[in-house]
Amino acid sequence: MATSISAVVLLGIVVFVLIQGGFVRLGPALACAAFGSFLASTGAAPVITPAINAINDWISSI
């Protein structure tokens, strides 16, 4: 749970900086957020979650 909250905060900051810097416009950023939200409710979520956890564990071990 703490990992997912940290990831959400980190990715939110990255998206905010990209929007403010003019690299990404608000429309595409919202479309990506909506896509991620819908993707989380599909059958792909059980495959994606362990992959993200494995990457997180790998980064933590460095």
Rank of each mutant, 00 (worst) to 15 (best):
A51W: 13
G22P: 04
R25E: 15
F35E: 04
A40S: 12
F35L: 09
G12S: 13
Q20M: 11
V24Q: 00
T49W: 00
I48G: 02
V17T: 06
V8C: 13
I62E: 00
P50H: 01
F38I: 14
V17G: 02
Q20R: 15
V47N: 01
V14N: 06
G43F: 14
V47I: 06
M1W: 10
S61W: 07
F38R: 01
A44Y: 13
F35A: 11
T42Y: 02
I19W: 03
A34T: 11
P50I: 02
A45K: 14
P50T: 00
F38W: 06
I52S: 01
S4P: 00
T49G: 01
A54L: 08
F38M: 13
S37M: 12
A51R: 14
I62T: 09
I59D: 01
P46A: 04
A31D: 01
W58S: 05
G27A: 15
A33Q: 11
A34N: 04
S41G: 05
A44Q: 07
T42D: 04
A44R: 05
V14T: 14
V24E: 01
G36T: 09
F35Q: 01
P50A: 03
G27W: 12
L39G: 02
S6G: 15
A7I: 10
L11F: 13
A34W: 06
L18A: 15
P28E: 06
A40E: 02
I62G: 06
V14S: 09
V15P: 08
N56Y: 03
F35N: 01
I55Y: 00
A51E: 13
A45L: 10
L30N: 05
F35S: 10
I59E: 07
W58H: 07
A40V: 05
I52G: 00
A7Y: 05
R25T: 14
S4V: 15
A31P: 04
S6A: 15
I19N: 12
A45V: 10
V17S: 10
A2N: 12
S4Y: 10
S41K: 09
I19F: 07
G36H: 13
A34C: 07
A29M: 08
L39Y: 04
S61D: 12
A31I: 12
I59R: 07
I5K: 02
A7E: 06
I52F: 02
S4G: 12
V8F: 11
V9P: 11
S4F: 14
A51S: 14
A51D: 08
F38G: 04
N56V: 03
T3V: 14
G12K: 09
G12N: 08
